[in-house]
Amino acid sequence: MATPFKYEAIFENNGCFIYFKDRAPRLMSAEQNVQVNSQEAVLLKCGNHFMEILKQTDEEEVEAMIIHLYPELLKKLYANELPKTIQINECKTHSEVIVSKEVISKFIESLEFYFVNPTLINNDLLELKIKELILLLIQSKNVCSIQELISDLYSTQSVQLKNVIELHRYSNLNQEELAKLCNLSVSSFKREFKKVFNDTPNSYMTDLKLKRAKELLSITEMPINEIAYGVGFNDPLYFTRTFKKKIGSSPSEYRSAN
């Protein structure tokens, strides 16, 4: 993947294990907004997710390895074993789980060997590697999170619009992307948003971002470009134009006056 990179990951009926080799993205979903580090892995449950990696250098590329986990496949592979591995025991966690590189590094190395030697791969070996991955995850320090996620593969998830907006109020997501995180069409999302916030998505989110920008301009010495990115604008010039239109002065003028 070349940077800058933004990807819409939709897993309607499966979980997804993703390992990032060199640089890792910010992951955004209905339940979490988290920065993953390089050489770490993340486990995503069914639902809509967005991955975003900002550009740091010219001609930069990012490498990732992705394994999809389908409920039907897990049931087939584990038969009567799976119910024993997904008992929750009062674990309370988020749906996205960062798995440490110490746990998973050797497994990734073994997969890379088969990418170099694809003629060695067969169905029996693929099944074995999937079971190996699940067993490694179950034995990791994130066992409660892994168990909860696997359990979630078998149940329908509900999403609260207000929670999604609160979580991503300073993210660079447009209303179409926010609607997908809420599992709603754009028209339904707008209607529900109006009921909850008594405003349009664009107006409400812009006001939130500008309010935070005013706070940062007043209490920090952060460069204006960094403030723009930090509150969810991907274009500092657009941020400046929007700020001046809504507030009545440019960001630099507002800072000087406060």
Rank of each mutant, 00 (worst) to 15 (best):
A2Q: 13
F5R: 09
F5E: 07
A9K: 10
G15D: 02
I18L: 13
K21P: 00
K21V: 13
R23L: 14
P25Y: 09
R26S: 14
L27N: 03
M28W: 01
A30L: 06
V36Y: 06
V36F: 08
E40N: 10
E40I: 00
K45Y: 04
K45Q: 13
G47M: 07
G47E: 04
N48S: 13
N48C: 14
F50Q: 08
M51N: 08
E52M: 11
I53R: 07
T57V: 14
T57G: 07
E59C: 09
E60W: 06
L69M: 05
P71L: 03
L73W: 07
L73D: 10
L74T: 01
L77T: 03
A79F: 13
A79K: 15
T85E: 15
N89K: 08
K92G: 07
H94K: 15
S95D: 09
E96Y: 05
E96R: 05
K101P: 03
E102S: 14
E102K: 15
I108C: 06
I108V: 15
S110Q: 12
N117Y: 10
L120Y: 13
L125D: 04
L126M: 13
L126F: 10
E127Y: 03
L128W: 05
K129H: 09
I130Y: 04
I134Y: 04
L137Y: 00
I146F: 01
I146N: 01
L149N: 00
L149Q: 02
L149W: 00
I150W: 03
D152H: 13
L153A: 06
Q157M: 07
V159M: 03
K162V: 08
N163K: 14
V164Q: 01
E166C: 04
E166S: 11
H168E: 05
H168Q: 12
N172E: 08
N172R: 08
Q175F: 11
L178T: 02
A179Q: 06
N183W: 03
S187F: 09
R191V: 11
R191A: 10
R191G: 06
F193H: 06
N198T: 09
P201D: 04
M205D: 05
K211W: 02
K211S: 14
R212M: 12
A213E: 00
K214M: 12
E215D: 10
E215F: 09
L217K: 04
I219L: 12
E221R: 14
G230L: 08
F233E: 04
L237S: 15
K245N: 14
I247V: 15
S250L: 11
S250V: 04
S256N: 14
